[in-house]
C-alpha cells in the first residue's frame, strides 16, 4: 500500500529563532496520511498546526526529520521542485482566502491552470466546472470585494481544486465564516473529497469542522498527543 501514502513524516522537528534563542514549534512528529483521507490537525493556537501544514506544503522547511509528500522527499528537493509539486499536485486554502483582489472569480480560479500551462479551452471548461462545484456560477465575473466571506472562501476552494490536485491543505478555512457558511464550505469539501479522491488536511480548532473529519490528529505544544479515527463523521453521511 506504499503507493497510497500521500504524506509521510518522520521525527519532524521545527525550531524558529526567537531573539538569541529558539522556539520549538514541532517536536519529533511522526505522521502518515493515505490517499483520500479527510484529516484535521487540531489543537489550540501555537500548537504547531499551521507550521506542520506549511512544511507539508513545502512553504517552510523542517529543522530536523524527514518529510515525504506525494512520494517526494521534501528535504532533498529544491525550491523550484517544491514549487512544481505545489503547482501540479497541491491546492491551498487560507483563512483569509488570499484571493487576488484585481482578479474576478473566474480569473482567480483560472490562475493555477495558467501556471500549469493548460490551454485556454480546457482552462475555461475546468474553471466553469470548479465554479459550479462550489455554487458560484452566478458570480463568475465578480471581484472578491463584491463577494461575501463565504463566497470568497468558496472561490478559494474552487481555486484549490480546479487542477484536481492529489492533496488540498486548508489552514483554518472556516475561521472567518459564520456557522451556516462553515457547514456549506465543509459539505463542498467533503463532496470533492469523495468525488475526486482528493486528500484534505485541515489545520483547525473549529468544532464545526471537526464534526466532518474522518481522522483527527491532536497537536499540543508541537507534539502529536492523539491520533483518532472517527467512525461516523458527517462526511460519511
Amino acid at each position: 500500500m506504499e503507493q497510497n501514502i500521500v504524506i509521510k513524516i518522520k521525527n519532524l522537528t521545527k525550531r524558529f529563532p526567537v531573539g538569541g534563542d529558539y522556539f520549538t514549534a514541532l517536536q519529533d512528529v511522526d505522521l502518515t496520511l493515505n490517499e483520500g483521507e479527510f484529516t484535521g490537525l487540531v489543537g489550540p493556537s501555537g500548537s504547531g498546526k499551521t507550521t506542520l501544514l506549511n512544511i507539508i506544503g513545502g512553504l517552510d522547511s523542517p529543522s530536523k526529520g524527514q518529510v515525504s509528500v506525494l512520494a517526494q522527499a521534501l528535504n532533498d528537493t529544491t525550491h523550484k521542485e517544491r514549487a512544481q509539486l505545489r503547482r501540479e499536485n497541491m491546492g491551498f486554502i487560507f483563512q483569509s482566502y488570499n484571493l487576488l483582489p484585481v482578479y474576478t472569480v473566474f480569473e482567480n480560479v483560472e490562475l493555477p491552470l495558467i501556471l500549469n500551462k493548460i490551454d485556454s479551452q480546457e482552462r475555461r471548461q475546468k474553471v466553469a466546472q470548479a465554479i459550479e462545484w462550489v455554487g458560484l456560477s452566478d458570480k463568475t465575473n465578480s471581484r472578491p470585494a463584491m463577494l461575501s466571506g463565504g463566497e470568497c472562501q468558496r472561490t478559494a476552494i474552487a481555486r484549490a481544486i480546479v487542477h484536481q490536485p492529489a492533496l488540498v491543505l486548508a489552514d483554518e478555512p472556516t475561521a472567518n465564516l459564520d456557522a451556516e457558511n462553515s457547514h456549506h464550505i465543509m459539505k463542498i469539501m467533503v463532496q470533492l473529497n469523495q468525488e475526486l479522491s482528493t486528500s484534505f488536511v485541515f489545520a483547525t480548532h473549529d468544532e464545526k469542522i471537526m464534526a466532518y473529519l474522518r481522522r483527527i490528529i491532536h497537536l499540543n505544544d508541537g507534539q502529536i498527543t492523539k491520533d483518532e479515527k472517527i467512525d461516523n463523521p458527517k462526511s460519511a453521511a
Partner: peptide, 15 residues
C-alpha cells in the same frame, strides 16, 4: 507581498 506569497503557494517559482 501577500499576493506574492499566494503566487508562491500556488506554485510559482521565485524566478
Amino acid at each position: 507581498g501577500k499576493e506574492i506569497g499566494t503566487l508562491m503557494a500556488l506554485g510559482m517559482t521565485r524566478a
